[in-house]
């Protein structure tokens, strides 16, 4: 089992005391599997994604990644996990504005010490970015930026890919195209994929669909 989440709780400070966001979430995910996480705004799906990715910490419960307890890791440990095993694709793309397309794609792979020039070239071609490799993020459309973000995640060859509304900022046609490419490429790498989405169409493309309601899986 690549990922096992048990009894995770999380709350944020509010004006009238702590506001619970996750209240005892359990789930598991194996390599090669895809999973969607749906729910209303504020249901805690992004928070769960952040916890799984080592971006945030839990108040209670355990998050086992390949048998290691992510909750027990200190900041440096969580940073190492993010560097080498996890990649996140954001709705806002979050590319590095000072690097061009080619360097953005190679960036996380180089951080992880797994840069493979041939694979980067293949991803650039597969995602139709060949003519844009020397452009900077601000010179790209939304769809192109999201393709760069996907290529960046895949180039690092992580075992877990987390995608937070990866097509939320794209029009319907582009969204479908980007999703197809992402699923095909994730399938090739054999990584696990967890996608947070509002879209039933996107969720339907995943192996498993989970719903989060008021901090608990429905």
């Amino acid at each position: 089992m690549l990922l096992k989440v048990s009894g995770v709780t999380k709350s944020f400070a509010g004006a009238e005391g702590p506001v619970p966001v996750l209240s005892g979430v359990d789930l598991s995910l194996d390599l090669g599997q895809t999973m969607s996480l749906q729910g209303e705004s504020g249901s805690g799906k992004s928070t769960l994604l952040h916890i799984v990715g080592g971006l945030d910490t839990v108040d209670g419960g355990r998050v086992l990644f390949d048998g290691r307890d992510v909750a027990a890791l200190d900041e440096a440990g969580r940073a190492a996990l993010r560097r080498s095993d996890v990649a996140v694709i954001f709705q806002q793309f979050n590319l590095i504005p000072s690097l061009d397309v080619s360097d953005n794609i190679r960036f996380q792979a180089r951080l992880a010490g797994r840069e493979d020039a041939a694979q980067v070239a293949r991803l650039i071609e597969a995602l139709g970015l060949g003519d844009h490799r020397h452009k900077y993020p601000e010179q790209l459309s939304g769809g192109q930026q999201q393709r760069v973000a996907i290529a960046r995640a895949l180039a690092a060859r992580p075992r877990l890919i987390l995608a937070d509304e990866p097509t939320g900022n794209l029009d319907e046609a582009t969204a479908g195209e980007v999703l197809d490419q992402m699923l095909a490429l994730v399938g090739e790498t054999g990584a696990a994929l967890m996608v947070v989405t509002h879209s039933p169409a996107v969720a339907a493309r995943m192996d498993r669909q989970l719903h989060l309601r008021a901090g608990q899986l429905a």
Partner: peptide
Amino acid sequence: LPQLAPVWAMGLTRGA
């Protein structure tokens, strides 16, 4: 912050 957060997300600590 929006420029540094992605780098942090990819595995650099806040201290680094």
